[in-house]
Amino acid sequence: MIQSMTGFGKSVLQLPNKKITVEIKSLNSKNFDLNARIPSQYRERELDLRSIISNSLQRGKVDFSLYIEQTGTETAASVNAAVVKKYIQELKDLGLEGVSKNSDSQLLEIAMRLPDSLKTEREEIDEKEFEAIEKTVIEALAEINKFRSDEGAAMEKDLRLRVSNITNLLDQIIEVNPDRVANTRERLRKAVDDLKENIDENRFEQELVYYIEKYDINEEEVRLKNHLSYFNDNLNSTENNGRKLAFISQEMGREINTIGSKSNHAPMQQLVVQMKDELEKIKEQILNVL
């Protein structure tokens, strides 16, 4: 079964003094591209988290977010009193205290918004806590992979329909091919008759056979059938083979284009146009296949 590259997963971990939320979103991409938003205290373990995510998702443009919300009384941040006092004094020196009785509180409010008003003590990573975070990341990955599989199942259904449509159109091309040959023979015969010249019938037949063989599409029919069968086989594969499906669809396009260039017959050309339309829909879907 194929998987989509699009998905979303979320998991929440509640610890005694903090709430940790993990969110993972992925979109289609040729390679694995991870954008990680992680609090500074966990930066030294970012490579570990990246490895877990890349091994699970393998491919796609991935956004990973780790949010920390303090729910207990403990906090790693405190007011940097010396810096705040200095800010207030400098604001007063600039004459920004105004005439309000609450000018000190107003200045304090302004000072608290300025850089370095809060200082954060660097926390050492608790290994048990980080193990719990890793477990939460794995839970979010399980959710996003389920999302990818569900969307992949819908994509697979549509891809099989498109392949079936191309197969049916190819069968119709095979049916009208004898008419195309007969039409070509008749057209050439009429063109020669219009010349009102005596011709060597044997030579005419030789030239006619050569001309018809030049526009023979039997090889293209056989190769296209093989490509369609191979495409279906790869839809059944348990491997992630979006790139292989894209390559097969390109080969299908080559054969369809060649049939179109050789057809020289309006009913067949109309069928080829329909085949191209179905193939374009296949290619659009494959862009999102893992």
Rank of each mutant, 00 (worst) to 15 (best):
Q3M: 10
T6R: 09
T6D: 10
T6A: 08
F8C: 01
K10V: 00
I20D: 02
V22H: 00
V22M: 02
N35M: 03
N35P: 00
A36H: 06
A36P: 14
I38M: 08
S40M: 06
Q41R: 14
L47N: 11
D48K: 10
D48F: 05
L49P: 01
S51F: 10
S51Y: 10
I53G: 04
S56K: 11
Q58E: 13
K61V: 00
T75G: 14
A76D: 15
S78T: 15
A81C: 06
L94F: 13
E97V: 01
Q106Y: 11
I110L: 15
I110N: 03
A111N: 10
S117P: 14
E129H: 09
E131Q: 14
E134L: 04
K135C: 02
A142G: 10
E143A: 14
I144V: 12
K146M: 04
S164N: 14
S164Y: 12
N168I: 01
Q172H: 07
Q172V: 00
E175A: 11
P178C: 05
P178I: 02
T184H: 11
N198D: 15
I199E: 10
E205W: 07
E221A: 06
V222A: 15
V222H: 11
H227A: 13
L228Y: 13
F231D: 03
D233E: 15
N234E: 15
N234I: 02
L235Q: 06
S237M: 01
L245Q: 08
F247S: 08
S249V: 04
N264D: 00
A266G: 03
Q269H: 05
V273C: 08
E278D: 11
K281G: 06
L287I: 07
